[in-house]
Structures are given as structure tokens and as C-alpha cells.
Write a protein that binds this DNA or RNA. Sequence first.
DNA 1: GTCTGTAATCTTTTT
DNA 2: GATTACAGAC
Length: 652
Amino acid sequence: MCALVRTFSHDRMFLHGGEDVRLSKESYLENLDPEQLEAVLKSSGRSLIIAGPGSGKTRVITYKLAYLLQCGVKPSNILLVTFTRAAANEMIDRARRVTGQDLEDMTAGTFHHICNTFLRRYASKMGLMNNYTILDQEDSKSLIRHARAKIVGRSGEKKRFPSPSVLRSIFSFSANTLVSIREAVLKRNPSHYNFITQIEEIYKEYTLEKRNQNCVDYDDLLVFAVSLFEQDDRVRQREASRFKWILVDEFQDTNILQLKLVEYLASVHENITVVADDSQSIYSFRGARYENVRDFMSVPNTSVFRIQTNYRSTDSIVNFINAVIPSGSIPKKLRSVKKNGVKPRVVKTWDRYEEAGFVVEEIQKLLNEGFDPREIAILYRSHSHSLEIQVELAKNQMDFRVLSGLKFTETAHIKDIMAFLKIIHNVRDKISWIRVARLFPGIGAKTASRLADHAFEKAKEGASILEIFDSFLSKKSTSLKQLRELLQGISEIPEVAGKIDFILKEFYAEHLRDTYADSKDRQMDVETLIEMASRYSSLERFLTDLTISEDFNNTDHESKLTLTTVHQAKGLEWDVVFILSVNPGDFPSAYALMDGKMDEEERIFYVAVTRARKRLYIINQTLRNYDLSLPTRAADFVERIPSDLAIFDSVL
DNA sequence: GTCTGTAATCTTTTT
DNA sequence: GATTACAGAC
């Protein structure tokens, strides 16, 4: 297909005005450096691009995409898989600008998005109705909580029995690594092994309820998509035929299911390019295995490209980065392009308050120097490490945005509104019924769950909202009547935005006023949600996007500092980066120290350090809240830093 | 049954 | 230090 395969073997000739006139005229390729260019142009068939941090991975994929389009590959024949929806959008935007082509028909997004589109299409094959709802983390936990209560009951046995969150992580780990529940418990939480029979029962109950209520969780999206292709070869053939080209970013963070999926989808045309940096694999807790990179590479005829130049950071920072390459990485040494940088600073403070004080003071200096606040970021291992700094910033009236922590879509008021919509979309969704019913005065846990059970049974018989309420035995309280009217009203309004507006006006605004001190802010959030909804005509699309893509959370940016966990900082970069609380027990986390799992922490630290373009600050504290009798030195990232690569400071 | 106050329980990272 | 389970008042 397209001239690619032919031209590739003959290398640069082609670039310097070889056969393909159309492309050689395009100046955009000149924006790439030789090693990037090679990766873009020469990779066809199966190829793996191992690219270090700051090597312009996004640019490589974007230009590869543009190049394919220029070669005449139709957008509908391309699959682009990225780690976040935002990353896909960014690449598409750039490729659109470069090529001037309309990319509407391209399939792009995260694995979860892509699996969801397959699942909607083939839902019935998998025993689902295509109006299934996707459970987010919290909904999934609620469902597990119910299943848990059913199995463990109210007896004293409950003590030390794994909590819903722990159970969820066990189930999720099992799904994403293709191991049994038994093995998952042994691997992750061996101390819970004596509860194994109950855990297995809860898992059964949870799975059954998900099916009954026509719900899938995040893991199911992947699991179902994989088994769809495994079970039906015709479906696999049909879908794989469509994708003449597949591009996958952040491949080191894929799990075994995602690897399988990619292999299925590439099985017809075998044109697949994956980009990876094994040192940046930081999602093992959700099944990511950087061994995928090795497995992918070990298939015959896979070509491997390496980009080891770092275009992002100054030489001083790159030298520092080279000194903290995680153990177990594929050996690498990054080259820098930007010269005369400032050495990273390692600053010792007393406690988290002093740390916050120092950071704010230093930021003020940087702003005076002329740095743009949008180009300054504060990173930390855990969201809880950010509280003191948030207070300190607020005290000094400095604007900031927080990417970590409670997301817009996770706040109680947004979840309430969503629950109304979810009922309309999938009447069997008990979790939403319970959530909604409890908002009304006089309806508590008991009535709510009786109503949910009733609605569920009636829905199976195909009853309407009105019929569900009419046959609900309980005394016709005013609350129930109001709920009935409300749901009926929502279902009659066609537009998504109109539905939400109706909920707000008829009921929710008042509810907010009665229950929250900050009801004004919350109402404004709901109004934002209406604004978002106005861009959607399909309720299903709206619900899906809101639970599956986080684009909605990264709102305005204007002249603000950024605060975020390292995990959420992946793929981003700033001129100035502060890394907070680099002490054993905080970063690396206490968890990792206990389990001796330092390798992943090293990679997280590596990701953090590599976000900085010009200035890098590493802050730690003398007052350790984690007292180690264990070897602290090995666990202390600061202790490992060679003395000539940073400036060591103390504000004590 | 609902609502409210108090005691116990953890405590990462997220699509 | 916040969430959640539970006991007791209504």
C-alpha cells in the first residue's frame, strides 16, 4: 500500500528530492531531526520506536500521521491509540493543520474509547444491551459494597475483611492481568488469602449484578472487546481489515489485554507502529507491563528505532536525568541539545509547611525573573501532599489549577445529576436509582434500595417510568410523587442539556440550597455541565464521554500555576518543575517501601524529573513522618544524586 | 424507617 | 484527618 514500503528501504535519497515530489515539497518534514525522520519515514510493517523523554514522541506520531495521509491513506483506515483523549485530540489537530485534511472519520482515542465503540456495535454478541452504562470507579465500588454486604453480612466477621476498594483493586488486577481471583489475592494482598472463598463469592455476585443491571466497569470494556475478537473470527477479520495503519503511543503502559487487542487489530494489514519508553512505565498497579515492549519486539520482522536525543531539557537537567535512569531499564544515555542550563537544585526543608513556604517564595522570584506562571508546575507523588502548598498559594493570592484529586465528574453534585440521566438511559441501573432516591427527604437507604429493586424487576418486563411508580407499593409519599414527576419530565425532554436544566430548575437547585453551604459554586458547576451537554445530541455519547474521558477536568489554563500528581503529568512539560516531598515514605511511597517495590517508584521519579525544560527543584524534608529502621539510604532518592550534578541547599 | 452524633478505620497512583 | 459503620433518638 502507499508508497511507503517501496521508498523506505532507500532511505534519505527520497528526502532530498527523491521520487516523491509531492512530499519533498512539504516543509513540515524538515522540522524533524534525522533520527525522528527515520522513525517517521522508514517504519512500516511492525515497528517499535523506543523514544526517551523529551524526544518529541508526540511530534513523531503526528508527522507519521500526516505522512500517511499525504501518501493517500484514508483517515477511516487509521487507528490512533493514545493514553488520554486529550493527547489524541492534540495530535489530530496538529495533523489537520499540517495536511489540511478533514480527520472526522479517523478512529482515535484511548483503548477504553475504542473498545467501547466495538462493544456498542457488537453488544448483543456479548450478552449486553447496547444501552449499557459504564460504571466509574465509585459506582463500581458501590456495587461491590452491596455484593460484599450480601456475602459477609453484618456479623463480626467483617473485621479485617477487605474493604470495597481493596476488593475492587483485586478484581481489576485479575481482569487486567488475566489471572484468577485466587492468584490476584496471592500476588497483591496475600494477607487476605484466608478470606479467599468469600472474596470469590463476592466476585461472582458482583459480576452477576453487573450483567443483570446492564452495566460494565472499566475493565469489562477491555475484557469484552478482547473476548469478542477471540470468540468470533469474522468480527476480528472485519474490524482488522479496516485498519490499514495502527499507531499506538505510550506503549509501555499497556497491559496484556491491550497488547492482545492491538495484535488482533493489526492481524490483517500488519502495519503497526508503537512508541514506547520503558523507563516511563508507571501504571503497573493497573496491570501495565513494560514487558509488552519486549514481547512486541520479539515478533519476527519488527523493526526497532531509537531516539535518544532529548529536545526538551537543558544539558544540566539531561545530565541529571542520566544519573537517575531507573534500574532495569533498557540501557540508555540521553543526549541534550539545549546548552548552558542551570543545575537542578535539591533543597532540604524542615516540614511540609516550610517546604510550601520555600516553594511559594521561589515561585515569586521566578515570576519576577519573567517566567510565565503557566510554565511552572508543582508535582507530587500523592494528592495529599499538595494540601499545604495549596493553602500557602491561596494565602499569597497566587492562582493555580489542580489536575489531581477530586475531578469535576467525581463531585457529589455532578454525580447526582448524572444518576438521573443514567436512569433514563438504562432503567436497570440500581446504583443510580439508589443515589437519586436518597436525595429526597424521608427516603433513606432502605426505601431507596427497595425502590431500586422494584424498578429493576419492572424494567426487565419493559415497564415505563410511570408504571414503575404506580406499582410501587409503599405509601405514596410526596417525595416519591415528586421523583416520579421529575423522571417522567426528564424522559420527555429530547435534548440532553434540556434534561439537566429541567432537573436543576424543578428540584436540584433547591436541594443544593438546603444541603450545602457552597451551593452557589455547585450550581455553577451544574450550569457548566449544561453547557457541556449542549454540544451533545446523544445521551449515550454524553454519559460515555463523561465517564471515560477526562478532558472535561482540565479546564481553564489562563495564567495559572499547575499542581498535579506525577501520574497525571505524564506527557506534559513545563519550564520550571518543583517536585515535593522527596522523602522515603512520601516519594517513594510507604507502600512501595513495605513491599520492596522500588523499581516502579524509580520510574515515577524519572517521569517527574523529565518534565522540566529549564529549572528543576527537588524538595525534601528533615522531619520524616515515616520512621525507617530499614535501609533508608537505598530508599532515598536524594541520597543517590551525584554531588556534582545538582546544587544542594537547605533553608533550615 | 430516617436522621444524627460518635467511634473505628484506613490512608497511592487512574482509564 | 476524612470517610464509613454503627448506635440511639426521633
